[in-house]
Design a binder for these strands. Sequence first.
DNA 1: CCGGAAATGGAACGTTGTACCAACTTGGAT
DNA 2: ATCCAAGTTGGTACAACGTTCCATTTCCGG
Lengths: 232, 232
Amino acid sequence: MATRARRTQRRNQVLSREQIIGAAVELLDTGGEGALTVRALTERLATGSGAIYYHVGNRDELLDTATETVVTAALATTAAQAAATPEDEIRVVALALFDAIAEHPWLATRLTLQIIRNPVGSISVGIFERIGRQVSELGVPQARWFDAASTLVHYILGAVSQNARIEGDTSGVEPDADREEFLGATAEAWQDLDPEDYPFMHAIAGRISEHDDREQFLTGIAVVLDGLTRLR
Amino acid sequence: MATRARRTQRRNQVLSREQIIGAAVELLDTGGEGALTVRALTERLATGSGAIYYHVGNRDELLDTATETVVTAALATTAAQAAATPEDEIRVVALALFDAIAEHPWLATRLTLQIIRNPVGSISVGIFERIGRQVSELGVPQARWFDAASTLVHYILGAVSQNARIEGDTSGVEPDADREEFLGATAEAWQDLDPEDYPFMHAIAGRISEHDDREQFLTGIAVVLDGLTRLR
DNA sequence: CCGGAAATGGAACGTTGTACCAACTTGGAT
DNA sequence: ATCCAAGTTGGTACAACGTTCCATTTCCGG
């Protein structure tokens, strides 16, 4: 009767799959995709490679699982919010993905890679379902649902991925200082382009300093939503 | 006077940088990003690793250069075509990128990676300039040029990347047989989803068989172009 | 308390990107 | 024609990686 607390197959798992995934996400956030090595994992978790491969099977599978975990978590936080209109709900989902990639830049390539390799996977299907439902409430005729949802998802994931920032340390005092500097450097680079060959870049070079990625993203969504009304 | 053909620094270069890039693209097309190894290159070019590193410096730089070469070539072929309207020109450029990724699936992740890491690079600037010029002829007020071009580029590159197909051999007799099979499998997978949790995917599952990626892409572009008229 | 199953840590293997080098080739100066 | 510094090459060597394998330890139902 000493083991009364022990039930059926309860086991005190010292190293769980979730711990490995968590450590993997931390490594990825710190140093990007290259920082996720099995050896770095064993050191951080104070274990051997055998233990990791027992739970996870593969580096690629670990990357997929980490991606799925982060994206699912990002989408889950939006589930609670009650959006007034379908348009608002789409914006909420889109911004959740935007912020997720801002926190985890390695998602930019991994997300598209995963959608390409496994279009039936839970990520693709989850995002598509979430967006698609709103499309159907947007007055788009059912024959066009697929096209409309596809357009929205393509735009959202494209914009979100291309807005990811890779660079290293934002651990400094002012995280916006790098941003200012980056925008300034970009503006200068565009200015330096030959106006003969690049008249457009030259024309908008001044505009980039007074611009906000997030707002521009929302503008893009508004454009696509406006365009969708034409499908009716 | 025996060397009359020899000018200043003309040199009979046995191994040129262009040859290396060409071989790299072939390897990438054949077996994806994992197939591009320095050793595979040395074998194909019948040389040593020293020669390759003398011309190219880096595996990552080689991947960047290969990407740039392929994309630039794809865009160059469209320069000859005379498009009637700005909308047509945008479609021409977009389809060129669509086809380029169809031929070189490894571009899907590499293209976004390159845009993220070097937004001032020739690829980003080249595409942006090409699209932007049409935007300015579309009646969009100059204050909105940046937003409009950004939306278009984000959508085009997003859709194009997410439409890439990874799978192996299309060397069979019927390249569309795999495609049919893939669409069927996807439709079935969507059908098998729980209709309670995934009503939308269930609703459009039948629609996927009668769908064409290219047409859907053009529909998406039309949607975005329609939306842009609202910026006026 | 005992035995099979679950889980672990570490050694070992093959492959990778890359640095380095000794040799060969080239082409302008003498 | 000869020579030499710069350019170019093939190959070796090394550290780091993903992964396999296995002896050992820990677990838990009977």
